[in-house]
Design a protein around this nucleic acid. Sequence first.
RNA 1: GCCGGGGUGGUGGAAUGGUUUACACGAUGGACUUAAAAUCCAUUGGGCGCAAGCCCAUGUGGGUUCGACUCCCACUCCCGGCACCA
Length: 786
Amino acid sequence: MAEYNPKDFELKWQKKWEKDKEFEAKDSSKKPKFFILDMFPYPSGDGLHVGHPRGYVGTDVIAHYMRMKGYNVLHPMGWDAFGLPAENYAIKTGIQPSISTEKNIKRFKEQMKSIGLSYDWSREINTSDPVYYKWTQWLFLLLFKKGLAYQEELPINWCPSCKTGLANEEVVAGKCERCGTEVTKKNIKQWVLKITDYAEKLLNDLDKLDWPEKIKEMQKNWIGKSEGADIDFQVKDSDLKIKVFTTRPDTIFGATFLVLAPEHKLVGEITTPEKSSEVKKYQEATKNKMDVERQLEEKEKTGVFTGAYAVNPANRKEIPIYIADYVLPYYGYGAIMAVPAHDERDFAFAKKYKLLIEKIELDKNIEQATKWLEKMGCAKKAINYKLRDWVFSRQRYWGEPIPLVFCEKCKEKIEKEDYKKGEFSKGELLNPGWIALSEKDLPLTLPKLEKYEPTGTGESPLAQAKDWVEITCPKCGGKAVRETNTMPQWAGSCWYFIRYTDPNNQEEISDKKLMKYWLPVDFYVGGAEHAVLHLLYSRFWIKVLYDEKIINFDEPFKKLITIGLILAPDGQKMSKSRGNVINPDDIIEKYGADSLRLYEMFMGPFDQPISWDTQGILGVYRFLEKVFNLSQNISEKTDSETKRLLNKTIKKVGEDIENQKFNTAIACMMEFINSAEKISLEDFKDFLKILSPFAPHLSEELYQSDKSIFKDNWPKYDKKLIIDSKIKIIVQINGRLRDTIEVESDSSEAEVKDMILQSEKVQKWIQEKKIKKVIFIKNKLINLVV
RNA sequence: GCCGGGGUGGUGGAAUGGUUUACACGAUGGACUUAAAAUCCAUUGGGCGCAAGCCCAUGUGGGUUCGACUCCCACUCCCGGCACCA
């Protein structure tokens, strides 16, 4: 007799599906569409580990299910291929990032194919491919021209020894990952996108989304809306005003000093000469202990008096102005009115520096206080967000070049206002001298370099490519230089799902009709680590595109599910350095792709983190073996109990897939196989259909048909068959289980009561006692209260 | 500190007001085998008992209910996120 050996047929079916284009989506169809998407991976040099497929198999199960339910399914895959590791690898080996990336992609793709994932590979995209990033650049120009991009001097992590900027991941405990030198900050002109313009929409539209509450909550906190008032404080003996934001304008009478962030722009101007050196020292100290260090520190407040005073507009009292690093430069206006009687932090500061703590009787609520201050002309109702604008440039090589040039001549023209209306875009006027490339010059391709080392000035390695940098201005034909910073990895992933609808289009981001048909994404699956950055940035770009009428939807992902991380058997995160990575290739080699798929789904709830247990695979392998063995033992007719169980299983598996409860769907199929006795070929085929999304290879192999199992419809279950004729009823006395009896289904209360009163067990518990109450639930339970 | 999610056998987990522990792993015993692997059968929360059976158990304490893993209150521990946010 034949034996279950997945190697005999898994590869065969993978090739056949590919040859038959079995899973390619049709751009027009009478069927309803369903766009199901995985977050695309960064193709690292390490290949896939068993954590990756969890999400991929989950979406694959749903994709197959929806196809069999009659949907036209778009299920694509691609590569988020720009990023730092490829660049670092190039520095070490001299190998072009494009070459190492290509190699990695090949490996990832082979691995994915060996799992039998039903991707439509004809739509594969790669963010580092000029055909793709042409449109990332085009989108950036759209934002730029709209005035949503501006330049600002911002600090980056800087290693004084390597003379290079560092990504946050390269800073370990405040030190450079490579050389161990203390990391400092360096100010660099950066491109910044005005995501804050969309803060309110991004916040409100969360309500429309079918996303996990947890993710919505995280975005809400990230956006961090608070309502209050802006209040101006006049600096004493000066024209200067200091603007603060407060959520408690009603406490203004208790404001006994002001505190500015050390980075506040007015600090230099207001500081008195005798305080100047002390203030400068404090500013310098703050600069060098930002971020990591600042957070690690005890919350002991420090600060310095500037020597200046401001006037409290409510009571005209003069109050001192301090600087302190507990006031953050990027929240509100980087300045607060300190109310020590009402705020713990202000209280601690006031105590330490012996400042006035004034208790106040609140005679106004927030609303009234704001109105009163507005009337006096010193305050305005205001809303503040924690959300900050998005720093969009990177001093890196391996990313999309920013398609802008800097032209001195155009800058002068704009500054002298010597230009015609419409000559410059909004973005060009906002950033004098910066000129957008014209659309026909896109893509602006990344030049190949010989050396990828940092420049030592903090500029991108691209600055070394003189031929590339020095060009003529597309506006005036004068001398100009290119922007040498590149875009962050998020740029390509902000909009990639759009490109799947029309991946080879040279004229447009995607055909309008195709976008209208396929978008938005119906079902999106990925790691919760992208809760704020990727998912928020993407929502932002989509809202801009919607406002520009390029697309007709304003949220990219209707439904989102997050996957739980797969941990190594030791409960730790899998990583090369820990040496605990489990490679799916080994699992497939030993047990086959179907077992890998099934185990990934069976381990536990889809959205919960879980440790890998290679032993556990045996269970699903044995199950598949039993399915195979049953196929070798088909009967003429299915016995009635098996028939009933099959119908129940069809119902349960369908419902479980729709709720992403893959583990219980599999458990239910196991129960069926464990107790199936006689089964006809027709019924066995129905079972194969519900198994096929999970174990496509074995299901196809056993299906015995001239067309693919996936061309067939999902089986229907017979409602009548699901009801058992005899039903076990739970018998309780005073709510405690004392017996169970079998009755005809739908037996009435009286019938059941008569039956159980004859039972010895029940009599024993009732004895002489009187039955006070009977609780009866049809087909389930009877409870006598005595 | 704040927000979110959790605590069920030796292990992963199932059950969202009605038989706690489905399904699976592991373990123990048995069959087959020269032997091992594989496979098959049985047992597998704890306690008492020869047995029928009874009692106890879903982090802790209380409450609601005929009946609570499930709902409510308080506490506790674990995991994830955010955090000097004015």
